[in-house]
Design a protein around this nucleic acid. Sequence first.
DNA 1: TAAATAGAATGGTCAAACCATTATAAGATA
DNA 2: TATCTTATAATGGTTTGACCATTCTATTTA
Lengths: 244, 244
Amino acid sequence: MFRAAKQNKIFQDVVEQIQEAILSRKLKPGDVLPSERELKDMLQVSRGTLREALRVLEQKGLIHIKLGVGGGAVVQDASFGPVRESLALLIRHQKVSLTHLAEFRAGVEGEAAAHAAKRITPSEASQLQGLITQAEARAQQGRDQTQAFLKVDKDVHLSLAAITRNPISVFVHQSIHDNIDRYYERFLVMDVEAMQENAQDLKDIVNAVLDGDAEKARELAIKHVYRFNTYMQSVLEKNTDPRD
Amino acid sequence: MFRAAKQNKIFQDVVEQIQEAILSRKLKPGDVLPSERELKDMLQVSRGTLREALRVLEQKGLIHIKLGVGGGAVVQDASFGPVRESLALLIRHQKVSLTHLAEFRAGVEGEAAAHAAKRITPSEASQLQGLITQAEARAQQGRDQTQAFLKVDKDVHLSLAAITRNPISVFVHQSIHDNIDRYYERFLVMDVEAMQENAQDLKDIVNAVLDGDAEKARELAIKHVYRFNTYMQSVLEKNTDPRD
DNA sequence: TAAATAGAATGGTCAAACCATTATAAGATA
DNA sequence: TATCTTATAATGGTTTGACCATTCTATTTA
C-alpha cells in the first residue's frame, strides 16, 4: 500500500540531487561543480560519501572528473557512451549468437538503408561510391585483404546509418559492429569469391540508395545481412577450434 | 607511438579486475564476493577505494550490494536495467526524439513480425488472438481506457518479439517500450477512432503472422509503427504545455 | 513450540591526514 | 622584454581508523 518512505542511503540522495540539477538544466554541460571539500559542506556529508555519489554520476555519463587546480566534476553533454557500454555488456554476458545478431541487424540495417535512400545528399553519395570502389579493390586483392575488406564493409554500413541522421541507428550500428568485430577479427579469412559477392551486394544496395529506391534498398540490405551471416557461419564451422 | 602505460586510478583497476572475473564467468550470478574488509586486504587497497569501485560495478548492473550479516556484493545476472536507464537519460536530454525511436522501431518490429510468422506455435497463436480480442474491447470502451489499450498494444509487440526467440529483439523491445511509456503515460488520451484504427492494425499484423506471411507481416508492422507515431505526434502538439 | 532478545558480521558513514596532479603565478634567464 | 623554469596552492586520489545501521543467527524466555 505504501512505498518506502525515504532513501536511507545518503549517497543515493546526493546522486539524485545532482542528477536532478543536471536534467533540469540548472547545471549545464561545461559547468564545473564546487570542489569536493566545498560540496561536502554544502550537502553536509563526508567526503567519502560524496565521492561515491560522484562515481555513480560519472558512470552514468553525467559528469566527468578533472584533476588538478581548477579541476572538479564537469557536467557532460548527454552521450551514447553509457548505452553502448551497457549494451556491449549484455551481449557479452548473454553470449548472444551471431545469428541472433544477424536477425537483429537485418531489421535495423534494412530500415536504415530505406531511410538513407530518401535522405542522401550529393556529397554523401560520392563518399559512398568511393567506399564501394575500395571494397571492390580489396575483394580482388585476395585473402590477405580480408581484414581491410571487412573494415570497408563496416564503413559502408556505418555510413548508411549516419545518412539516416537518426542517432539511435548510428549508435546501434556502432554497438553491433563492435561486437561483430570481437567475434571475427582474430582468425577470419574470406575467399575471393565471397568477398566479390559481398562487394557486389554492397554495390547493389548503394545503387538502390542512390536511385532513391527505398524498398529495394531495404530488401537488398536484409538479404545481404543474411547472406553474409550464412557465409560466416560456414567458415566458423570449418574453423571451429575444439579448445573453445 | 605508445599508449598509456597503466591506469593510474586504483579504483579503475579494481573495477576491471572484478568485471573481468564476472564476464569470464569465474564469478557466476548469485555468487557473493568476500566482505569489504577481506577484499581490501586481498586487493591491497583502502576500503574507501574499494567501495568506489563497487559503486561503479553496481551502477553497471554487474553486482548488487546486500546489507547485514551474510551480505556483500552479489553477482547479478545480466539485466536490462542499465540500458534502460541510460536510454531514458538520453531521451530526457532530448538527444532522441519520438520520431527517431519510431524509425528505429519500424525496422526492429518489422523484422520481428516477419520472423514470428515463421516460428509461431499453436499455443502462442491462441495467446496472440486473446490479446487482439482484448485490444478491440478496450478500443470500444472509450477514452478512459487509453492506458489499458496501450498496455495491450505493448503486450502484442512484446509477444511478437518473444515469439522470435531472439533475446536481442526481446530486450530491445522492452527498452523501447519502457521509454515510450515514460513519455506518454502521464497525460495521453486517445480518441475512440484512433484506438479502433490501431486495434485493426494489430489484428491485421497478427493475421498475417498466423497465416505465415512474413513479408506482409513486416510491411504491416512497419506501417503500424509510423501511423502510431504520426498520431502521437499530433496529439502531443495539441497538448504541448508551454511551461515545459 | 514460538516469540523475544542478544550477539556478531557486514555494509554505510564520518573524520583527518597525506599523496599525486595540474593551472597559475613568481622568478630566473636569455 | 620575452621566454623558460620553478615554486605554490588548489583539487582530486588514497589511506587509516573509528563508529553507526542493518540483518542473520543463536540463545533465551514465555
